[in-house]
């Protein structure tokens, strides 16, 4: 028996030894490399060796070597198929109740969430969302909205001035004027945004807060439409069962004007010392009314042909009421322990 044939036998043993231990596919590949590696593979070396043999030995040895090659190639295929069915040992947790893998997420600001909830309701009714500047002129903030100069009606809108002409808007209503100036009816918009008042801080007042304004202008718009739409809005926000009432009020830019109260969701009128409603059982939530004819005239819309309704609501105060937050300042302190509570909704 030639030296080469001896080696073949030796290698067959070696192959069997290795193959009997194989479990994973990776090990099959290692074994293949051991025998067929391009430079140092055992069989590769044997074929190199074959070339050096004298011609009379070459033929028989060559046949034996080729047979051996085919043999282990076939076995490798089998091994590979088998290895596939052998699964790696999986780690099994001893306690499945341990916490899961949770990347840290950021929380939206509650006022953003509340504003979004309001926008969604109106957008579902065909309103579009508009915005406008926070630095305004006296004309847009007051005069065009039918506040005469030096009228006490301005007292409820304490103003932060930049100079004699410019001020920080005290309500989102100037955007009504800006939209009506550039667009012909029908108009169906809401305007959320920041507003500013010269007010000293207390539990329900701050010099800056958020408002949302709504405006509808078209032929044949009535007070009944105002009622129906705002009722739907409030029910969509606070639930079907919430009670509400409309009472007469005064705003220079609407006539007739109304305020809307909703039932106190804290005490339902049962607690005379209720911190939220003061025992009245009602909480004022928004101001509204039919667009004043003078406002229409200021933007060149004919009040004989068109009518409209508008409303304004304080987002902060409504959110305070809905979430029972006692102080408005929480919204602007940005304490993460407060902010990160509002991830639902």
């Amino acid at each position: 028996m030639s030296i080469l044939e001896n080696k073949i036998r030796e290698y067959r043993h070696l192959f069997e030894e290795h193959s009997s231990k194989i479990k994973e596919k990776r090990e099959v590949e290692e074994l293949r490399q051991l025998f067929f590696g391009r430079k140092k593979g055992l069989l590769t070396l044997l074929f190199e060796e074959l070339k050096t043999l004298p011609p009379e030995e070459k033929k028989a040895a060559g046949r034996a070597l080729n047979e051996f090659k085919e043999e282990i190639q076939q076995q490798l295929v089998q091994l590979e198929l088998k290895a596939k069915t052998v699964r790696p040992q999986e780690k099994i947790a001893e306690d499945l109740t341990l916490p899961g893998w949770k990347p840290y997420w950021g929380a939206p600001h509650p006022l953003t969430l509340f504003q979004l909830a309001i926008e969604k309701i109106f957008v579902s009714m065909g309103f579009t969302v508009e915005d406008g500047p926070e630095i305004e002129t006296d004309y847009y903030n007051f005069e065009a909205l039918n506040f005469p100069p030096h009228h006490p009606a301005r007292d409820s809108w304490d103003t932060l001035y930049i100079n004699d002409k410019l001020l920080l808007r005290t309500h989102t209503s100037p955007v009504q004027i800006r939209v009506m100036e550039k667009k012909k009816p029908p108009i169906r918009i809401i305007i959320p945004g920041k507003v500013f008042r010269r007010e000293t801080a207390d539990p329900t007042h701050l010099p800056m807060f958020y408002q949302v304004e709504g405006l509808v202008v078209d032929r044949g718009i009535t007070f009944a439409h105002l009622k129906g739409t705002l009722e739907y809005f409030i029910k969509a926000l606070f639930g079907e069962k919430i009670k509400l009432r409309f009472r007469p009020s005064f705003f220079p830019f609407t006539e007739p004007s109304a305020e809307v109260d909703i039932e106190c969701i804290v005490c339902h009128g049962q607690d005379p010392a209720c911190r939220v409603c003061g025992g009245s059982g009602w909480k004022e939530i928004l101001g509204a009314g039919m667009v004043d004819p003078q406002v229409f005239k200021n933007v060149n819309i004919d009040p004989e042909k068109y009518s409209g309704w508008a409303f304004g609501l304080g987002i902060d105060r409504t959110a305070m009421f809905a979430y029972q937050i006692p102080e408005i300042r929480y919204f602007y302190e940005n304490d993460l322990r407060f902010l990160r509570q509002f991830n639902r909704k």
């Binding site: 009714m125 078209d218 044949g220 129906g228 739409t229 007469p248 309704w309």
Partner: peptide
Amino acid sequence: ADLIEEVARFYGYDRIPSEVTPV
């Protein structure tokens, strides 16, 4: 409009019906 508000006030806002704003 000012007189209409007077009528509405005394008629009672609660007696005015609620309707959908047409679109």
